[in-house]
Simulated scan of single mutants.
Amino acid sequence: MDSNYHRILLKVSGEALLGEQGHGIDGDILTQYSEEIKSIHDEGFEVSVVVGGGNIFRGVKGATEGMDRVQGDYMGMLATMINSMALQDSLERMGVQTRLMSAIRMEEIAEPYIRRRATRHLEKGRVVIFGAGTGNPYFTTDTAASLRAIEIEADVILKGTRVDGIFDSDPEINPDAVKFPTITGEEVLSRQLDIMDLTAFTLCRENKTPIIVFDMNKVGNLKKVLQEDASVGSKVVWEDS
């Protein structure tokens, strides 16, 4: 497949794994995502993945009301590990070699995150899944995705969501929302568009890392994004890159 990208970081939300369920992991969605990742891996792309933990952590949100923020954030990191392990198992059952790397040491189930080791796994054709966020409280999985993408020198961050791109308002609420096929980082900030948290976005801006937001739930979209199909998703570009 012809593409300007070779090494990618895919960020998917934990909520997306809910599917039609109220909690947990929808097996059909997990299989669909794994098949999408396998399809681009088979094309020769070096693929890394960061998965959020909202599908699990949201289920215990009531219990965390009033809880210490740091304690809650560590619980969220453990939720990402559950999702990462599920994705790893699903990919391995499809014959895709993977490595799960954790920002928090838990050697029985994952390798500790080491940048050089992660890049070596990618060079050897393994899908690398980054779990446990950055390993620090007060940082989101969006920030973890941006940080890991920069560290491994990914060509692009692909943010898989439930909507196909960046709009001037929420398309799930406003049916007349206008989509931006391409948008500058400065316009994202001036319009206060909620793509990712400010820390994550600033990391991408400072390192000129492209971001593409697209609908991960539509079969075939991941491959179309890498083919730079203008009908799919929205790309954030940096003015002086």
Score class of each variant (00 low, 15 high):
Glu186Ser: 15
Pro210Asn: 01
Arg205Tyr: 08
Phe167Asp: 03
Leu122Ser: 05
Phe139Lys: 05
Arg162Val: 14
Ser231Thr: 12
Glu228Trp: 01
Asn174Arg: 03
Gly95Thr: 01
Lys11Ala: 09
Pro171Met: 10
Gln71His: 13
Ser190Tyr: 06
Phe130Lys: 10
Glu228Thr: 12
Pro137Asn: 13
Thr182Val: 15
Ile25Ala: 04
Gln97Met: 13
Gly19Pro: 02
Val50Gly: 05
Leu17Ala: 01
Gly95Glu: 01
Gly62Ser: 13
Leu78Val: 13
Gly125Thr: 11
Ala177Val: 07
Ile157Pro: 05
Leu226Cys: 06
Ala177Thr: 06
Ala144Leu: 06
Gln21Pro: 04
Gly59Met: 03
Asp194His: 13
Ala103Val: 00
Lys124His: 11
Gly54Tyr: 04
Leu87Arg: 01
Glu92Arg: 08
Gly125Met: 09
Ile152Tyr: 08
Ser231Arg: 03
Gly220Leu: 14
Ile152Arg: 02
Gly76Asp: 10
Leu122Cys: 07
Val50Gln: 10
Arg69Thr: 06
Asp28Asn: 12
Asp2Thr: 03
Arg205His: 08
Gln71Thr: 03
Thr98Lys: 12
Ser234His: 13
Ile56Asp: 03
Asp194Tyr: 05
Gly44Met: 00
Asn207Thr: 12
Ser190Met: 12
Ala103Phe: 01
Val47Ser: 00
Val188Arg: 05
Asp68Trp: 13
